[in-house]
Amino acid sequence: MSQERSATLKGNPITLVGPSLAPGQPAPDFTLNKNLLETSSLKDFAGKVKLISVVPSLDTGVCDAQTRRFNEEASKLGDNVVIITVSADLPFAQARWCGAAGVDRVVLLSDYKDNVFGKSYGVFIKELHLDMRAIFVVDSNDQITYVEVLGEMTEHPNYEAAVAAVKALI
């Protein structure tokens, strides 16, 4: 049985599918595409603090700004922190966007194939087959310490709170 909750896109209702994750819970494992043939999982970032920034598509203004902001923050957080951006964009589109935007400190992973990340992290948008804007901070032991799932897709996350949650772990 799938869990569903409501959110909005420009005030119009959308449905999020999956669990409502909370601090203190273990982070669900995932397998996401780095490119068409290579994948990456939570285990690939073992021992690091992880800020997982989820965006619907890099080709929108808020998603672009969110990813650029965390790329800037990455250089200030040290080698024990990894910032992962997850979107349902194809890996080709992610690589093109990174090159055009000069983003080089964030790991971009694609949930395009089967939306497993979105469904296991509770951010899969049923109507659009995209992932809802969200931030998850996961400690070096893969426990969730901070969650922000936006109620309105077009709003920005609380960047300061997310960065503060990471800094509290390093």
Rank of each mutant, 00 (worst) to 15 (best):
A74M: 11
P23Y: 13
T85Q: 05
D79S: 11
R96W: 11
N80F: 01
S57W: 12
D104Q: 15
T154V: 03
V62M: 08
S120M: 09
N71M: 06
L109V: 03
A134G: 07
T154E: 09
Q143D: 01
C63L: 07
G151T: 05
I125M: 09
K10M: 15
Y146K: 14
Q143T: 07
A161T: 05
L9F: 08
N71K: 06
A7V: 05
C63M: 08
G11H: 05
A134D: 05
S75W: 00
S87F: 10
G24C: 13
A100S: 13
T60M: 10
C63W: 07
H129F: 12
A95M: 13
T15Y: 15
V166P: 07
E73H: 07
A165E: 07
A88K: 05
D64M: 03
A164P: 01
R69D: 01
R105K: 12
L32C: 14
G61M: 04
P157D: 04
T39G: 11
A101R: 04
A27N: 15
N141T: 09
T154C: 00
W97Y: 14
V49H: 06
I14R: 09
V138N: 04
A7W: 02
H156P: 00
A161K: 14
A65R: 14
V123K: 03
T60L: 11
G99L: 11
L36H: 10
I84K: 01
L108W: 01
G61S: 11
K113G: 00
H156C: 00
A46M: 08
Q25S: 11
I170C: 04
A100Q: 15
S41L: 07
A74F: 07
D64I: 05
V49I: 14
L169K: 15
H129G: 06
R105Q: 11
Q25W: 07
N115K: 08
F117M: 04
V107M: 05
E4S: 12
H129A: 15
Q66T: 15
L36Q: 08
V54P: 03
T154S: 04
D44W: 07
S6G: 10
L51F: 09
T85Y: 02
E127M: 02
K10S: 15
P13M: 14
E38P: 02
G151I: 00
L36P: 00
D64F: 04
I125C: 04
S87C: 13
A100G: 06
P91W: 09
K50E: 01
V62N: 03
A27M: 15
T8C: 06
L77H: 05
S120G: 01
P26C: 11
R105A: 10
V54T: 10
E72W: 04
V103E: 12
V103G: 09
I170K: 07
V123S: 02
E155I: 00
L130A: 12
R105H: 10
D131R: 03
T31I: 11
L16P: 13
E127H: 03
E155D: 14
I83Y: 05
T39D: 06
N115A: 06
I14L: 13
